[in-house]
Design a binder for these strands. Structure first.
Lengths: 105, 105
DNA sequence: CCGTAATATCGTATATTTACGATATACGAT
DNA sequence: ATCGTATATCGTAAATATACGATATTACGG
């Protein structure tokens, strides 16, 4: 029943799982890709490129922002999002650490 | 209503999101960590270390196996799981590619 | 063959995610 | 002040995820 026993895991484990969760939808992967490629990262541009409604895209952006993978900067009546490299690097390091000593049984 | 519009995204995006999904629970992060640390990777050993029931752990193992992050090898009456480095490397490369050109608006 | 141990699967309850349209908010222009 | 545009939030329905106990399966030892 999805009883949140998260306190039984380490903060690192919970954090990495949370970042992974934010990456666990193709739309959010696509959004991150767009943010690294487009010279224009207004929400409207993103919505145009995705097969999803504006409100749904907004929800996905909120999820990415929640874990800090992107930041939104208000630009007049628009919002400009961009990738937060720091969080990204931290996530990659955590992954590397997790798998630094792969050795099997 | 979670209408699966996944065909609108690229295979790469879907795959990476799927791997991320399999990493999106602290128990599964913990399992992967255990598999890289324990000299004994029987299911029983994993269950012992986690605050979850045997059936729940088995479900998590199934999810990790589904995306190929781990392989299970039958060893008598037990099953020995280990990390699949190939899938892992592929995932890391996909992440690196995704973020190779971080440049903001 | 039978019992025991290890693991997987089933059934099921609850929680969370995903999606959309409708509505609210914020801002710039007129 | 009002209008139009851009974005966020609300309400909600359907899908999926998580958890557990109970049961099935598999393999070995006697």
């Amino acid at each position: 029943m999805a009883k949140a026993k998260t306190d039984e895991f380490t903060a690192d484990e919970i954090w990495l799982a949370d970042v992974a969760k934010s990456l666990s939808h193709p739309a959010r992967i696509a959004i991150l890709k767009l943010l690294t490629e487009l010279d224009n990262c207004m929400v409207g541009s993103i919505v145009e490129q995705l097969p999803l409604s504006q409100s749904t895209v907004s929800q996905h952006l909120k999820e990415l922002k929640r874990v800090g993978l992107i930041d939104g900067e208000i630009d007049g009546p628009r919002v400009c999002y961009c990738v937060n490299a720091n969080v990204l690097i931290r996530a990659k390091k955590a992954l590397d650490k997790l798998f630094s000593k792969i050795g099997c049984c």
